[in-house]
């Protein structure tokens, strides 16, 4: 079994659509794991029916019990993130700035800072329109620790794959945009990363940062150029980038509204009646299979 991730650096490059197309093509031999837990659209692309859900606990949050607070200010001095400030009656923690380190708990002489478990979101196991499995999650908006939830999604997908019969050939991971914590959590240890390069200035710049990250993580990459044909210069730059990082270019998808219309109809490209769109999905699938040595 292979773990294959979709990543791009830039948001909106087409990761989710390509991940859905590959998932549809692998059918019952594939599992989709939507690790873009900030903006999870795999369930829309694949038509998820939720089979089971569970709460995801994000870890500790902190609050100051105003009636126990002596307003000494030790907590505010301890906080390196400027998350604690004096209010009219006591000190209070600004959740938006709190990094959840808990240093304030140790330093409060009155025991007024209390830790509590925070509900971070939910983890779902669903069936797609084609009865394959999708593991996905939703973070509570404004919540923290998406890297931890990404690991939980991956672990669940791996556990389901290990028990599956017929055996699973591939877990398809849809990574978040960017290059930070949840992206690293999505890409660590994967067998193959498909870098979706949006053929444009921002798409190429952001993909370049991603290739550098992947190189540091020693992960193998192949490339798909998406939304090509708008600007010949950036089409060429996208090709050059893939070449510079020795990432075999397996597909160049033109900017064409037939892809978007197919996504909107919930066909995941592979099941599209449009022969052009379905053909592109089939050839993507076979190129990814061979790159992953499946």
């Amino acid at each position: 079994m292979k773990t294959i991730a979709l990543a791009s650096g830039k948001g909106g490059a087409g990761k989710t659509s390509v991940a859905a197309a590959l998932g549809a093509a692998f059918g019952l031999q594939g599992i989709n794991a939507d690790c873009d837990v900030d903006a999870a659209n795999g369930a829309i692309a694949l038509g998820a029916r939720i089979m089971s859900s569970e709460d995801y606990w994000a870890g500790e949050g902190y609050a100051i019990n105003a009636s126990a607070c002596s307003s000494c200010g030790a907590c505010a001095l301890a906080c390196r993130f400027d998350a604690i400030a004096r209010t009219a009656s006591a000190y209070a923690i600004d959740e938006a700035l709190c990094e959840r380190c808990g240093a304030c708990v140790d330093l409060c002489p009155s025991g007024a800072v209390l830790a509590h478990d925070k509900l971070g979101g939910a983890l779902y196991v669903s069936k797609t329109r084609w009865d394959s499995t999708l593991v996905h999650a939703e973070l509570v908006p404004g919540e923290d620790t998406s890297g931890k939830l990404v690991r939980a999604v991956r672990q669940r997908a791996e556990a389901i794959a290990a028990a599956a019969n017929p055996p699973i050939e591939a877990i398809i991971i849809d990574a978040p945009p960017g290059i930070g914590c949840p992206v690293i959590a999505s890409l660590s240890g994967v067998d193959l990363t498909v870098v979706v390069i949006e053929a444009g200035s921002s798409g190429v710049r952001d993909a370049a940062r991603l290739f550098e990250l992947l190189s540091g993580m020693k992960r193998a990459a192949i490339a798909v150029i998406n939304k090509a044909g708008i600007d010949a210069y950036w089409d060429a730059q996208a090709r050059g980038l893939a070449e510079a990082w020795n990432a075999p270019l397996i597909a160049v998808l033109p900017w064409d509204k037939r892809f978007r219309l197919s996504t909107e109809r919930g066909e995941a490209w592979f099941h599209s009646p449009d022969v052009f769109v379905a053909g592109q999905a089939r050839s993507l699938y076979s190129a990814v299979r061979s790159a992953a040595a499946l």
Partner: peptide
């Protein structure tokens, strides 16, 4: 993009 810690920090 997103709606969690980096976005919260940026919008705060």
């Amino acid at each position: 993009p997103g709606a969690t810690c980096p976005t919260v920090r940026a919008a705060h």
